[in-house]
């Protein structure tokens, strides 16, 4: 049984980020980490491997050269091999192009489960798992709090507005998991050292039998403007008031804004 976890390198949540002059995310500028939500997917895959349900855990990422860092960090957590799709034509790739490329790479790797995190931290896009499933013609098990594998099926437990559902589909599947999976492990020092010796293959679009034309030039959407958010009115602070007075002050504030 093989799982391929799709991993994206994104700017760290707390890092300073910006767009370049041609309105693309300046991926070099900020400290890059594994998309936090993908860490849960990695953790889920590794737990299944530890439980003996999965033999091979591999990683797949699409990004610039430096995205190899995210893959090395993933390999330091566990897993056997990693694959990176890098191509100049992919600069500024949007969700559809990403899904198209990942789908082609996943078809090549043919795992039992293509596993992803729920969404990515930078653009908060979340359409990649569904699109990959549609392109590959495979079932989708999304928003899983937990993934389970039996011989020929996959099951996820998904939290609903109240309670949870269990969804099932025959393998192979595309799946996405949420942070309910459990705390992702830290990479141990031995893991980091072992990661340096693990396979990391780089593929270009040509390797996948794709060309820039196939991807409509990598982006079906474009950013026409990037600006800082509107300056917010400064915070009104209320300090050193007794509870009853503070409550009155808040109620007045709400009334003034027609919220009560």
């Amino acid at each position: 049984m093989k799982i391929v976890v799709c991993v994206k390198q994104v700017p760290a949540t707390t890092a300073e980020k910006r767009y370049t002059a041609d309105l693309r995310l300046d991926r070099a500028a900020a400290e890059s980490v594994i998309n936090p939500l993908d860490e849960y997917a990695i953790e889920q895959a590794l737990r299944l491997q530890e439980a003996g349900a999965v033999e091979t855990v591999a990683y797949l990422s699409m990004g610039p050269e430096s995205a190899a860092e995210a893959l090395r960090r993933a390999l330091a957590m566990g897993g056997e091999e990693a694959y990176q799709v890098t191509d100049d034509a992919l600069a500024g790739a949007d969700q559809w192009a990403t899904a198209r490329v990942l789908a082609a790479a996943l078809d090549k790797l043919a795992p039992d489960v293509a596993l992803m995190g729920m969404s990515s931290d930078d653009a908060r896009g979340s359409l990649v798992p569904g699109a990959v499933a549609a392109i590959r013609g495979l079932p989708l098990l999304s928003y899983g709090a937990e993934l389970q594998l039996t011989g020929s099926t996959a099951r996820i437990r998904r939290l609903t507005a109240s309670g949870f559902d269990i969804l099932e589909a025959p393998l192979p599947v595309v799946a996405s998991v949420t942070d309910q999976v459990g705390e992702p492990r830290y990479a141990s020092l031995k893991g980091i050292m072992a990661a340096r010796r693990k396979t990391l293959e780089t593929w270009s679009l040509a390797h996948l039998g794709l060309s820039s034309e196939d991807l409509h030039g990598a982006a079906l959407t474009r950013v026409v403007e990037a600006r800082p958010p509107e300056a917010k009115a400064p915070t009104e602070r209320v300090e050193n008031l007794g509870p009853a007075e503070a409550a009155t002050r808040i109620a007045d504030w709400l009334t003034a804004r027609k919220l009560i």
Binding site: D121, A123, S126, P228
Partner: peptide, 28 residues
């Protein structure tokens, strides 16, 4: 044209579909 808050609210972008892109554009 759609306005989005990106990068944890630090950048507001305005985007549209590319000139020769198919229709519709999906708006979440």
């Amino acid at each position: 044209r759609a306005e989005q808050s990106t990068l944890q609210g630090t950048v507001i972008t305005v985007s549209e579909s590319a000139a020769d892109a198919p229709q519709p554009v999906i708006i979440l």
